[in-house]
Design a protein around this nucleic acid. Structure first.
Lengths: 184, 184
DNA sequence: GATAAAGGTTACTGATCGGTCCGAAAAAAG
DNA sequence: CTTTTTTCGGACCGATCAGTAACCTTTATC
């Protein structure tokens, strides 16, 4: 048996998530990834295969952490209006309080995907479908739940993109409030 | 006075718009731009300054054409519900009929912007604000028009991003229908 | 026809890109 | 202690990147 790894692949995934989220796939180089993970690219290549593998690892870390946290918020409320109010609040507070304009990594990836490869496109689409299922579940027996879930997902994605584009936070709040009202 | 241009800068802008819309800023190289415009990069540099100037030219062509066409659709109906129904229909038909999954170039640019430069960020944000004003005007005197305009903009942006990510068209239609209902 | 100005063509630049190769180092087994 | 296996570190690869320079060609004016 040979030499032990000196790094934790989870730590590498987390660091890669942060920079791919901020700068996108094409906007992030191997040099950037070396710097943020503090690892030589040879180690990254051995662990993740190629740059696309690194990107997919970053996306799956995002789903495991941020998306899962959002799901927990939705499930913590049985009333749909309160559930979505809590979700939008959790999403908007970092923008309002820390001017965190990164948006949603998944939403960014949805726009950022054409020239990468089909496996990534498929993955991102599947992740959006899972998010839709989460929104549908949160609406429960609500009248017209299927339509509302889709409109809420679109609104949610839109708010995240508009946050990233720099729209003022009062506008984002107004949009969120209206979407919350529409859960009825 | 010297030699006349052998090309129309508007044609160049249009060709650059198409490829930046499809592949994004970082995903498009000078070689790509030469190919689609059929011009040597020296001519592009002389006309547009640098790659960012080419990108801004492409974005402004998009606003002048696609965004302006959307505005005309909204203004062609005095009833807000009909106006937005027509807008969403115009946006969803190419997805349904030709599987056109490019989404909205402005929305893509909103996600694609962090590492380019502040002037582009500012421009994209201002374009979103102009779009918001168009949506607000289309709602006219509607009760809670300000909130509705913002929710409609978020929903619109979200639908465009979800279209690009590959969500099935029935889901997109359901979201649009729900957003149209919410204009009341 | 000469001149000045502008555009087109081609070559060139230094840097960076994603990815590979190879020897050195470290760890475990025998 | 030696051998085998695995990881680390640095060098290297061909290609591409955004951008510049210089020269040639074309055009209009005088």
């Amino acid at each position: 048996m040979g030499r032990r790894k000196r790094f934790d692949p989870q730590d590498a995934k987390e660091a890669m998530k942060q920079i791919f989220w901020q700068q996108g796939y094409e906007g992030t180089s191997l040099q950037d990834l070396e710097r943020v993970t503090a690892l030589p690219k040879q180690s990254l290549y051995r662990e993740f295969g190629d740059k696309r593998g690194m990107y997919l690892a970053a996306l799956s870390a995002y789903e495991a952490e941020e998306v899962r946290a959002a799901s927990r918020i939705l499930r913590a409320h049985s009333d749909p209006k309160q559930a979505f109010a809590a979700l939008f609040d959790a999403v908007l507070r970092p923008v309002e309080e820390q001017d965190d304009r990164r948006g949603c990594f998944l939403c960014n990836a949805a726009s950022d995907r054409t020239t990468i490869e089909p496996a990534i496109d498929t993955w991102v689409n599947a992740a959006m479908v899972r998010m839709l299922a989460t929104f549908t579940a949160a609406l429960g027996d609500t009248d017209k739940g299927d339509q509302k879930a889709r409109a809420l997902l679109a609104g949610y994605v839109g708010i995240r993109v508009l946050a990233r584009s720099g729209l003022p936070t009062p506008d984002l709040r107004m949009a969120a409030n209206r979407l919350i009202e529409s859960t009825r």
